[in-house]
Amino acid sequence: MQDDYLSTSNYSAQANARGALANLRKAGSTKLDNSPLALASVLSVLYSPLSDDEIGKNDWLTPSEKAVYYSLVSFSQHMQGATTKAHEPGIGFAQACGRLYAVSSSNSIKPRFDAMLLSRDENSMAVHLRSLISLLRNAGLPFDYARFAQDLRILVRSTKNAEDELARNRVQLRWSRDFASGTYFDRSAETAE
Rank of each mutant, 00 (worst) to 15 (best):
A167F: 12
S74Y: 07
D164K: 14
V156I: 09
C97T: 12
S124F: 14
R187F: 14
Y145M: 01
E54K: 10
S188E: 09
Y145Q: 05
A67W: 00
R147M: 09
V103D: 04
M116P: 05
A146V: 03
R120N: 09
N169V: 13
A139I: 13
T159S: 15
A139R: 14
G90E: 01
A149R: 11
S181A: 09
G56A: 05
E88M: 10
D121A: 09
S105G: 11
P142Q: 08
G56H: 05
P89C: 01
S64M: 02
L152P: 00
E122Y: 08
N58S: 14
L166Y: 12
S64K: 06
T191M: 01
W60N: 13
R174C: 03
R157N: 14
R153K: 09
F179T: 04
S134F: 12
D59R: 15
Q80T: 02
F93Y: 08
N123Q: 14
S176G: 13
Q95G: 07
A102N: 03
L132Y: 03
M125Q: 15
L118I: 07
N123S: 15
L155I: 00
A94D: 02
L152S: 02
I91M: 02
T84Q: 10
T159H: 15
S105N: 12
S76Y: 04
Y101L: 00
K57Y: 08
P111V: 06
I91E: 03
S74P: 01
G98S: 13
Y69Q: 11
Y184S: 10
A180S: 04
Q80C: 01
G182I: 07
A126L: 05
R177T: 13
K160L: 12
L118V: 07
M79W: 09
A167R: 05
E54N: 06
S64I: 03
G81L: 14
Y69L: 08
E65H: 03
K110Y: 06
G90Y: 00
Y101T: 07
